[in-house]
Design a protein around this nucleic acid. Structure first.
Lengths: 150, 150
DNA sequence: ACTATGTTGTACGAAGTCGAACCAATAGGA
DNA sequence: TCCTATTGGTTCGACTTCGTACAACATAGT
């Protein structure tokens, strides 16, 4: 492959990196009380999928080391957004449950983010985003399979 | 906007986040001597655009606070990959130049990454990536102008 | 020339990430 | 049963990011 073809991949990852950073900053600006994107992501996951998960399950779901998940969950528990209870089925582990405060925090956050999303949607409509998402998902799958030394 | 339209934007940022993480891990696995993606990005930028830039110009190019760029440049200078000289035109600032070691480190890294890029290119061709990049750049610009009430 | 204001880079500290080492509990033999 | 390997989770330490505060220098207006 020649250099011109190759460089387009570098540009791609460069844009991805900048959008990730700007998107994260935008999200976190709307989240009150020092709640970060990882915090919100976990809350959202617990609502959408189901709570009563172990920390390790969550770590795997987000492709993140378990030590990072320990830290994220500690932040959520400190803020009273989740609580942990012992796992009767395996006494080494524990289960993470949403509190009512955690559930409503997530719902409120979604409403607040709606403003930002609307502003973006005014300039880049959902139809055009909807074209991008499957392409990105395809690339994500390719990268993920490459990661497992194939 | 209804919930179905809104969720497309959440999916978008979700894919972006995962690709950023996988891409970063892939890149850094190939970079020797504790050189990180920010380090490489700056080296690459200095080669492609031109060296003799100020730290602040670099910080703006990567949408990163200048304190972060100070740290990244310190790492590069520590490894002998760049050197800084005083800026005669503005004595407050300094100019960042590639060393021969920096140039060859970047060239070697490109060769090492070529395998990964080629593997990705086999499954997702440059023509399709080339379509994505301008779309992402457009979104990046929109997000940038939305930031902190501009 | 003088003063006010803006800009460049750094030092420092708070917060987040993650690998290594560790402990407790479990599972799988022998 | 006992011994060993494995697994879930935390602690600790090194590292990165980035906001605040600051010093040095630059520039515009008077």
């Amino acid at each position: 492959m020649d250099s011109a073809n190759r460089s387009v991949y570098f540009s791609f990852f460069n844009e991805i990196g900048i959008i990730e950073q700007l998107g994260r900053a935008m999200f976190e600006a709307r989240l009150k009380g020092g709640v970060t994107l990882p915090h919100f992501s976990v809350l959202n996951h617990l609502v959408r999928v189901k709570d009563g998960r172990t920390p390790l399950e969550l770590a795997r779901a987000f492709q993140v080391p378990k030590t990072s998940m320990t830290n994220t969950l500690a932040g959520l528990e400190l803020r009273g957004l989740v609580e942990t209870r012992p796992n009767a089925a395996d006494k080494r582990s524990k289960l993470v449950w949403l509190t009512p405060a955690g559930r409503s925090f997530r719902d409120d956050a979604i409403k607040l983010l709606d403003g930002e999303v609307g502003q973006l949607a005014d300039q880049y409509p959902p139809e055009k985003i909807a074209v991008l998402v499957p392409a990105l998902a395809e690339i994500r799958v390719i990268l993920d399979t490459m990661r497992e030394g194939k």
